[in-house]
Design a protein around this nucleic acid. Structure first.
Lengths: 238, 238
DNA sequence: CGTGTTATTGATAGATCTCAAAGATGGTGG
DNA sequence: CCACCATCTTTGAGATCTATCAATAACACG
C-alpha cells in the first residue's frame, strides 16, 4: 500500500511552499499531524458551501477548483498541481468553501483539520507568512484574469488560458507541449468565459494554422510562439 | 495641522482589521513606526510596476486601485475605504505594485516601509494572520467578480457593481442611498467591464424606471430592492 | 462667457451566443 | 471481437448583445 511508504517519506514536504523554511522537526510534526486522502478521478475533496474543515496540499495528481452560479453555470477558478495547497479558506477565517475541488486525474492529498493547521501555524509563524505569500500570488493571478475578461476578445482569452495551462502542466513531447491531464473544450470554455462551441471553432482554426494539435480531451501546443502572438495580440510581421 | 493631533490619537488603529487583537503596546509601537501621507484628490500613493516599498492603511478618504493593460485600457481593481489596508504586496513577497492607487477624494493614509511592517509582523504574528484573512476575503471577492464577468450580461454586472459600491460607500440620504464619492460613468464601466456608453444607456433606463437618480459623477440609488432584482435576475412578479 | 470634461443618444457593424444537428471517440458488455 | 452507448466535438445558420463611430448636450470651473 503506497500510503505507508508515503507517510514515511521525510522529504515529502520539502518543495512545498507553505512549509518552506520550516525546520526538519517542524516538517515531521506537520507530517505526523496530516492525514492522507486518495481521490479517484472525478471525486471531490470538498464541495462549495460545505463547512471548511480541512486544508490540503496536493501530493500527486491534479484537481480543478470550480464555482457554480445560482443559475447552475460552472466556472473553473483554477487548477491545482502537485505541491500546491488548496482549501486555504480553512486557514484564513472562512466558514465554508467558496468552491468545489474535483480530481481530474487520480490524486493523493495531505490534509489537516482546521484545528490542526491552526495550531501548527501558531507554533510556526512562517507557515502563515508562506500561506499569505501564496494567496498574494493567487490574488494577483485572479486579478490578471479579471483584467483579461474585461479587456480582451475571446480568442485572446483562450490563448492566455491555454498559455497558463502550458506553464502549469505542460509536458514536452516530440513536436510540441502536451497539457498533462484531460481537458475538454467545455473546460477551456469555463476557464476563459466563453462557450464550448466558440472554443471548438477557435481551436480548429488554430489547428488549421498548425498552432495546436487536437484530440479528445487532449491538447498539444505545436507552436508556442504563435500562441503568445495571439495572446499578446502582436502584429504579424509585415 | 491635523497631522499632529492624529499621531497622538491612541485609538487610531482600533477598528483596523490588520491590527485586530494586537495589545495596546503593540498598537503604540505600530503607530510610532508609521508615517503619515496626505493624498490630494487625484494624487497617487503608488504606481503600477513601481517597487513595492510600503504598506498602507487608509485613515480617511477613498482611493481606487487600478491596472492598465499594455494597450492602455484601464480597469478598476477595487476601491479602498477608511480602515482598509492597501499596498499589501509589500508585505507578501511581491517586488512591485501590481496596480496604481489613486485618491478619489482627499485622503490620509498611514504608511509603513516594507522593512518596518516586516519587523512588526515578526514580533506580532497576529498581524500576518489578519493580513491573510483580509487577503482571503479579497481573493474571494475577486473570484466572484470573475464569475460575474464570465456568466453575466452587462446590465447585471452593472447592477452588481453598483450594489458593491453601495455596500462599501453608501450613505443614507433622503429618498435613497448616495455613493459617497465621485464616480463617473467611465469609472463604472472600468469596474464592470463595459464602455461608458453602455453604462450611460443602462443607468438612464434605470432612472426612467425610478431605480436610481443620476448626476454628474454622482449616483443615488432610489430603489435598492429593484437593483437587487436586476442583479440577481429575479423574475418580475406576475 | 469660454473651455474642457462628462454625459447622452442614435446608427451601424461585428463578435459571440444560442439553437440545432450530425460526426467522432472510447469504453463496456454481450 | 463487435456493436452499442454515453460523452465529447464539430459545424452551420440565425439572433442578439454590445462595442464602435459620431455628434450633440449638459455641466463645472476659472
Amino acid at each position: 500500500m503506497p500510503l505507508q511508504e508515503k507517510q514515511l517519506d521525510p522529504a515529502l514536504l520539502d518543495a512545498v511552499d507553505v512549509f518552506g523554511g520550516l525546520d526538519p522537526s517542524g516538517k515531521d510534526e506537520a507530517l505526523a499531524a496530516a492525514h492522507w486522502r486518495k481521490l479517484e478521478t472525478g471525486e471531490r475533496a470538498f464541495e462549495q458551501d460545505q463547512e471548511a474543515d480541512a486544508f490540503y496540499v496536493l501530493s500527486a495528481g491534479r484537481l480543478k477548483v470550480t464555482q457554480v452560479t445560482p443559475e447552475g453555470q460552472e466556472i473553473i477558478i483554477r487548477y491545482i498541481g502537485p505541491k500546491e495547497m488548496f482549501g486555504c479558506v480553512a486557514v484564513c477565517g472562512g466558514l465554508t468553501y467558496p468552491g468545489t475541488a474535483t480530481a481530474v486525474t487520480d490524486s493523493w492529498a495531505l490534509g489537516w483539520t482546521r484545528a490542526t493547521i491552526g495550531a501548527l501555524a501558531q507554533t510556526y509563524p512562517g507557515i502563515a507568512l508562506n500561506a499569505m505569500r501564496t494567496m498574494g500570488g493567487r490574488l494577483q493571478d485572479t486579478q490578471s484574469r479579471l483584467r483579461e475578461m474585461q479587456t480582451e476578445r475571446v480568442e485572446r482569452r483562450i490563448a492566455h488560458g491555454i498559455a497558463r495551462l502550458v506553464a502549469q502542466a505542460g509536458r514536452r513531447v516530440e513536436g510540441g507541449i502536451l497539457i498533462d491531464f484531460p481537458v475538454s473544450r467545455q473546460d477551456i470554455a469555463e476557464l476563459t468565459g466563453t462557450t464550448l462551441h466558440t472554443v471548438s471553432r477557435t481551436l480548429s482554426a488554430w489547428q488549421e494554422r498548425g498552432v495546436v494539435e487536437l484530440g479528445r480531451q487532449k491538447l498539444t501546443v505545436r507552436d508556442p510562439h504563435a500562441l503568445v502572438v495571439i495572446a499578446e495580440d502582436l502584429p504579424l510581421k509585415e
